[in-house]
Simulated scan of single mutants.
Amino acid sequence: MSIRTALVTGGSGGIGRAVARRLAADGMAVAVHYAGNRVAADSVVAEIRAAGGRALAVGGDVADEQVMSDAFDATEREFGGIDVVVHTAGIMRLAPIAELDLDEFDRISRTNIRGTVVVAQQAARRVRTGGAIITFSTSVTRTSFPTYGAYVASKAAVEALSLVLARELRGRGITVNTVAPGPTATPLFLDGKDEQTVENLARAVPLERLGQPEDIAETVAFLAGPARWVNGQTIFTNGGLA
Rank of each mutant, 00 (worst) to 15 (best):
Met1Ala: 13
Ile3Pro: 02
Ile3Cys: 11
Leu7Thr: 04
Thr9Glu: 06
Thr9Asn: 04
Gly11His: 03
Ile15Glu: 04
Gly16Phe: 03
Arg17His: 07
Arg17Ile: 05
Arg21Tyr: 00
Ala24Pro: 06
Asp26His: 10
Gly27His: 11
Gly27Leu: 08
Met28Ala: 13
Val30Gly: 06
Ala31Val: 09
Ala31Lys: 04
His33Asp: 00
Ala35Cys: 07
Ala35Met: 07
Gly36His: 15
Gly36Phe: 03
Arg38His: 14
Ala40His: 02
Ala40Asp: 06
Ala41Asn: 02
Ser43Thr: 06
Ser43Pro: 02
Val44Asn: 04
Ile48Asp: 02
Ala50Thr: 00
Ala51Trp: 07
Ala51Glu: 02
Arg54Phe: 11
Ala57Trp: 04
Ala57Tyr: 00
Gly59Asp: 06
Gly59Trp: 05
Val62Asp: 06
Ala63Gly: 12
Asp64Ala: 10
Gln66His: 13
Met68Arg: 05
Met68Asp: 07
Ser69Gly: 15
Phe72His: 08
Thr75Tyr: 09
Glu76Gly: 11
Glu76Thr: 15
Glu78His: 11
Ile82Gln: 02
Val85Ile: 11
His87Pro: 03
His87Ser: 12
His87Arg: 10
Thr88Leu: 09
Ile91Thr: 13
Met92Leu: 11
Leu94Asn: 10
Pro96Ser: 15
Ala98Gly: 14
Glu99Cys: 13
Leu100Glu: 14
Asp101Ile: 08
Arg107Glu: 13
Ile113Val: 15
Ile113Gly: 14
Ile113Ala: 15
Thr116Ala: 12
Thr116Tyr: 01
Val117Ser: 14
Val117Ile: 15
Val119Ser: 05
Gln121Asp: 13
Gln122Gly: 15
Ala124Asp: 06
Arg126Gln: 14
Arg128Pro: 03
Thr129Ile: 04
Thr129Ser: 14
Gly130Trp: 12
Gly131Pro: 03
Thr135Glu: 08
Phe136Met: 11
Arg142Asn: 12
Ser144Cys: 13
Phe145Trp: 09
Thr147Phe: 03
Tyr148Ile: 09
Ser154Lys: 00
Lys155Asn: 09
Lys155Pro: 05
Val158Pro: 08
Glu159Leu: 00
Val164Cys: 14
Leu169Arg: 07
Arg170His: 14
Arg170Asp: 13
Thr175Asp: 01
Thr175Val: 04
Val179Lys: 07
Gly182His: 03
Thr184Trp: 03
Thr186Tyr: 02
Leu190Tyr: 02
Asp194Trp: 13
Glu195Gly: 09
Asn200Asp: 13
Glu208Tyr: 11
Glu208Gln: 15
Gly211Cys: 09
Gln212Lys: 15
Pro213Asp: 08
Pro213Met: 07
Ala217Gly: 04
Thr219Val: 13
Thr219Lys: 01
Gly225Trp: 11
Pro226Tyr: 13
Ala227Ile: 06
Ala227Cys: 09
Arg228Tyr: 05
Trp229Lys: 04
Val230Met: 12
Asn231Gly: 06
Phe236Gly: 14
Phe236Val: 12
Gly239Gln: 09
Gly239His: 08
Gly239Tyr: 00
Gly239Cys: 12
